[in-house]
Amino acid sequence: MRDAFISVLAEIARIDKNVMLLTGDLGFGVLTEFAYEFPKQYLNVGVAEQNMTGIAAGLALEGKTVFTYSIGNFNTMRCLEQIRNDVCYHDLNVKIVSIGGGFCYGALGISHHATEDLAIMSSLPNLKVVAPADKMETKLATFEVYNNTGPFYLRLGRGGESELYSNPPKFIIGKSIPVFIGGDIAILSIGGILENVMKARLILFNEGIKTSVYSFHTLRPFDYDQIQKLINQVKLIVTVEEHLAKGGLGSRVSEILAGKYGDRPALLRIGLGDNFMSEVGDQNYLREQTGLAPYQIANSVKYEIKRNKI
């Protein structure tokens, strides 16, 4: 995803000389070509995320469109107040791009597990929060993040993700993408975990259970309309995220369901618990430790079908 992002940003930077990329001294091997081609539009501010975000705000106040780049929690939590006060309160054209959402950097330890970011970032006024699922979504998202004025958080994976789409989907900020349609069960996914959700769908399909799958790439603004439609269409909504089960996609859906009178679908939220990982491992290993492997997602859905007598 990071290569998809930077290739699109280069396309944009060739045309719009007001676009700038700031890094907090990260992006080895990823940003090299961009830095070489656009020396005036590239700035390594050093290992200083608070300053990077403040500088981004200052540049944006002077008319620049600024992308800040780092990994994990560094350009989100380390400088959260700069994002809140300097970027969001002033509603500036600053796009915060973090690589390594979820357990991408699993073996590096908890400092590099970005597993609370969606909850935290989506609580900030004026900030739009987007987490694309694969390279295709990342390319489309990067254009949209650039085209839409104002602050954004763009949560990306790392590299080497599978291609999930055979044709480019219609990508609109705040509108989910229907990936598969059919059945009484809708599985909603945010970010790179869509890959496992699609595998889980196949497992279920082979056992005669039809499910719809939606990529909810934007947490804010949220696609309330789609949830309202699903409330009338399905018996079970499942949310899957490589993130705390609280505060992200599952929470958004539960808030809507909680305000709904009468018949409503059951809700299963699949995500992480309120604890740090006690062991490290690669992304797939940690996904399995937290119930996010394809077979585990499928089993959780089957259990919920049985429990709710669907």
């Binding site: 403040g54 500088i55 540049l59 944006a60 106040l61 002077e62 620049k64």
Partner: peptide, 21 residues
Amino acid sequence: EFSTGSLGHGLPVGTGMAYAA
């Protein structure tokens, strides 16, 4: 020009403005 209140914010922002200028 800019809202502050939490300390340590103004100088990084001013630095960005100066860089842009």
